[in-house]
Amino acid sequence: MRNALDIQDVTFSYDGQNNVLQNINLTLHEGELVCLLGVSGGGKTTLFHIIAGLLKPQQGRVLLGGEDITGQSGKISYMLQKDMLLPFRTVEDNVALPLLLKGVKKKEARRQVGKYFSTFGLDGTQKFYPAELSGGMRQRAALLRTYMFGGSVALLDEPFSALDTLTKSDLHRWYLEVMDSIKLSTIFITHDIDEAILLSDRIYLLSGKPGTLSDEIIIREPKPRDRDFNLTEAFLRYKKQIIAKIR
């Protein structure tokens, strides 16, 4: 398998003294769904900002399909921690934003995003404003916008964290069905161990100060996964393994 993304020896600090991240090495294979698991304040979002080119690391490189893109933004689909839907644009115009920014005409952009509204469970919300959507819907809209950017790699920063448990498991099920079939190479952040095991092919553990990638766990459960996977023995074994490593 080719590498969709390589992070090589990345070290970063905000103030030039105290490193938030230290010698980070990470690989994402094509079509893979990888999870970055760690405590809050550990530097996960910072690492995503670096990969997305919003921050420049003091040391190390970011390679996209082998090409050095360190410090360049606009190459990778990035869904930030908050859904960041612009309150003054309708849902369809929010979702179409990445296309508009690339110079696609408004009408054509709306037509292109319109095709995905039902797949993303957003039917009929085209002309709504974000304030009229539920938390789960907002998250789906943000996911669709991220998808519409069309990068070969997607970063999702805690895509399900802000949701209540029921909405969350709903969205997990949908994600397993839909996003898995899209086969987008994806890294997502979470601090929820169950979510990490349920969705990922591989899990990186980010821990310590400064943050380092301390471990890598491969989840060998075949896909598409059953939503009852989290009730199985195998699931528990993974969970125990991760908890032991975090301690």
Partner: peptide, 19 residues
């Protein structure tokens, strides 16, 4: 963060201003 979102989508200064 809104500016970060726009930049991550490749928006330039003028586009951030307009949108």
């Amino acid at each position: 963060d809104t500016v970060n979102l726009m930049r991550s989508m490749g928006a330039g200064r003028l586009q951030i201003f307009r949108y």
